[in-house]
Design a binder for these strands. Structure first.
Lengths: 339, 339
DNA sequence: AGCGGAGTTGCAAGCGCTTCCAGTTCGGAC
DNA sequence: GTCCGAACTGGAAGCGCTTGCAACTCCGCT
């Protein structure tokens, strides 16, 4: 393995200078820098991250913690984060908590303490107070996306507002009986489904409609889950809603399929709105509120790196939570209710 | 930060003994080992991966290279690999090549050479010969899943056979006009779609049917792509196939939706078969060939770790490729052709 | 009693970098 | 011409572990 000494010898300077030239820390004359860069490229020299990390305390790696992998939203955020990190020269170490209690515990007890990463990004995590304590103990900067974790800097969407807008769109079209497929269950941060429901009820009240608890039912954020709930909503022609607002696009798609199965036309007989702007949304012509997970991932990296950049201690201003953008995207699954 | 010396002091032994006790390398009396373990737990000591890696050359991390994240198959493999790695005490460093040419190049030129990982798992990668050369240069064990990379140990499905079985199922039901939505395009290993087409044609010939090139068209492995191709196949009632075999479940689902849209019933008017056993397959009642990506990921980790375990040089017996299991799963999208 | 060997343990030398500190050079100010 | 500071460079001390080697302790044997 070719080391820093080889490069130093090739250029005729000390390893210290090579280190400075390559890392950009400390003064090096432009001429020397160029020679070093050249020699390094020529020899194919790449610094050993272990040695560098041990000596400097910086590893140039960021840990990303996700509760799931195989969900569109998480994968989008993760992909964007990966790209941003690679572009900045950072490795991404993945911690997927979806592997059961034991793996989850060992991540929080062991893995995160190995000094392998300079900082962490946590995506929509629902964590126990004990886990929050561990996260703080690590003493490294953390940025959360989505699930607000007490005392940590969080990037989050305004879930109440996003839902209000979606529901407003339906009331504005004239709908009065609007059902809501809420989120719920398993591993998700529980604030999200709750806030989305609050926004929905807010919009109804604004339109002078009293929310009917019989028109709200939770599902698990999947197509199959949305389908099952929608089928129940639509079963009785007497009590059938004229619109469904689902807390995610996948559930909305399930609802569309359920409607089609019993011969209802979308949007003529039933309007459907989702949240996400999932990759399948255009395919189904789904009206939805886009929340740009890619931007969220990229922004999280940006924030984290800036914190690392100023060699800061983990920011104590954890309350400086940053709202994210979203937009209503009107396609062809919403229309005025049947006469 | 609490270090190995603290533990040593607490127990009253040398750091060397603590290291041996914690890593399991070298002899330590049972009594001492217990004390060390106890003290480490108590103090919350976790070895610094940088220091350990630098001193030993082992990092207890594995790199996983994927071409995409937001595809069901990749996410499944990745998730399983992550679980297996965590269980074995390994970190997983992710390299997603989907970020464009530049990131791809820097991964192959820089990131993989940082000595950050002990080994690599490459999932269904299509690589250039230059990239293969770089992979070899790294000098670490590599296990590939799916895309056979020349000279590297590969775990792969028998794509010809898997397709043959799917198509056989259709011919056995009596179908004669069977269309194939092939894979193709962008970033995927190109052997896969090719082999699947070969298996399809093989099965047809076995049933005495001459393949009709007009009944084969590629799509991009997505629902939308499958939908578009299927819509074309089904447009002309005269030349309409009675069955469609898609090279992936997502494309098969697209085909089902396309059929429904023009009023065809599945399976009465059209049979559809896919490959994968995607999470949505049960929801659509899709008959498919399951290929268990989770097992593939777990098996890849197992192989890689066993290679690392015996401190082996990267195995030169790269041709010892291992076939993987798959099963025809018959659900409700296939039946005899209309009379 | 003396000895050889197995089982444990400690010593100390690194692993390959980074960075503090001190030295050197050079240009300008006086 | 001298002096000072800024800009650059090299020496060397670690960073926190692992591990080869030597030392030491018990045994059971002869």
């Amino acid at each position: 393995m070719i080391g820093i000494d080889d490069v130093a010898r090739a250029v005729g300077v000390s390893p210290a200078t090579v280190s400075r030239a390559l890392s950009g820390r400390g003064p090096v004359s432009e001429a020397t820098r160029q020679q070093v860069l050249e020699a390094a490229r020529e020899l194919g020299y790449v610094v050993s991250s272990n040695a560098s990390g041990l000596a400097s305390g910086r590893t140039r790696a960021v840990g990303v913690i996700v509760p799931f992998l195989n969900r569109w939203f998480y994968a989008q955020v993760l992909e964007a984060a990966q790209n941003a990190l690679l572009a900045a020269g950072y490795d991404l170490t993945l911690y997927n908590l979806g592997g059961g209690v034991d793996t989850r515990r060992s991540v929080f007890e062991q893995f995160l303490f190995r000094q392998r990463v300079d900082g962490l990004i946590a995506i929509s995590l629902e964590v126990t107070t004990e886990e929050v304590r561990r996260l703080h103990e690590i003493g490294k900067p953390i940025v959360c996306v989505g699930g607000p974790i007490p005392g940590l800097r969080t990037l989050s969407i305004d879930d109440i507002e996003i839902s209000r807008i979606a529901t407003d769109h339906l009331t504005a079209l004239g709908h009065r009986r609007i059902a809501h497929i809420a989120g719920g269950g398993g591993g998700y941060d529980f604030h999200l489904p709750l806030n989305r429901r609050v926004g929905y009820e807010l919009a109804l009240r604004n339109a002078g409609i009293e929310p009917d608890p019989g028109l709200v039912e939770p599902a698990d954020f999947t197509i199959a889950g949305g389908h099952a709930v929608a089928a129940r909503f639509l079963a009785d022609p007497e009590r059938r809603p004229t619109a469904i607002f689902a807390a995610s696009d996948e559930m909305a798609i399930g609802a569309i399929l359920a409607a089609r199965e019993i011969g209802l036309r979308v949007p003529e007989d039933l309007s459907v709105v989702g949240i996400d702007d999932h990759e399948l949304a255009p395919f189904f012509g789904l009206t939805t509120v886009a929340q740009y997970p890619g931007n969220q991932g990229a922004r999280a990296v940006e924030l984290l790196l800036s914190e690392l950049g100023r060699d800061a201690a983990p920011s104590e201003d954890g309350e400086g939570n940053e709202p994210l953008g979203f937009d209503l995207v009107i396609r062809s699954t919403t229309a005025a209710p049947p006469a």
